[in-house]
Design a protein around this nucleic acid. Sequence first.
DNA 1: GCGGAGTGATTACAGCTGTAGTCAATAAGG
DNA 2: CCTTATTGACTACAGCTGTAATCACTCCGC
Lengths: 121, 121
Amino acid sequence: MERIAEGEYAVMEVLWDESPLTAAEVAERVPLDRGWSLPTVKTMLSRLLAKGALAHEQDGRRYLYRPAIRREDYVAEESGRLIDRMFGGRLTPLVAHFAARDRLTPADIAEIEALLKELKS
Amino acid sequence: MERIAEGEYAVMEVLWDESPLTAAEVAERVPLDRGWSLPTVKTMLSRLLAKGALAHEQDGRRYLYRPAIRREDYVAEESGRLIDRMFGGRLTPLVAHFAARDRLTPADIAEIEALLKELKS
DNA sequence: GCGGAGTGATTACAGCTGTAGTCAATAAGG
DNA sequence: CCTTATTGACTACAGCTGTAATCACTCCGC
């Protein structure tokens, strides 16, 4: 499974959220701040098809697109890659890093604690 | 501060670990599995200089290179970016994701719990 | 002094990415 | 039927990236 680029990821997000969709529908749903034209979205869709990240089925003279990989798997791969590179493959240093940067609120801390507690049972 | 590419990051890691170094010394220390020639390493160094990620000082007819940005800051930016994109900017879902994928050992859990406990005091 | 080794600078080039434009076919509307 | 809007396919092109090769200079050993 080939690598998905940043811009392509925005298209995947749309389809993970709702599918199948036509190219035009995808274009409507892509975040506005991208400022993409319809041709741009079509290019993304073609490339994602070529990469095997999307599948399409014929619907008259159009295609309906849907994800061919699970968001869960993609997220696991990407976050695993980052954690391997920057935190020696372990989650704890990442949490420590966030904590040191004051990016953890007391509510976050409570939430994570609850989650871990759940895990142990 | 411009974006650092994946390959360039490998060079940064070397210099974060030890600096200042000459180009040849960096090349020696880059992970072998990259299989880079000396010219390749020099290209990386030039680009990182141009991006402002490295600084250099003259040493006779050579340069000594050293980081111009802190690893800590770079890591914060990159991991923040990923967490924003994939986990809505919050750490908890990432932890949950790791847990769901069985990437957390009991030892990890204990470690994170200790860390959080520390934070609260 | 002279030739070779090391050094930065410059150039090369293909593949990926962001961002379209163009074109041919076709469906739909008048 | 004929025009127009829609759609996928193909083409374009610059900037970034990985991966060098080449070149000109200079210092060191002979």
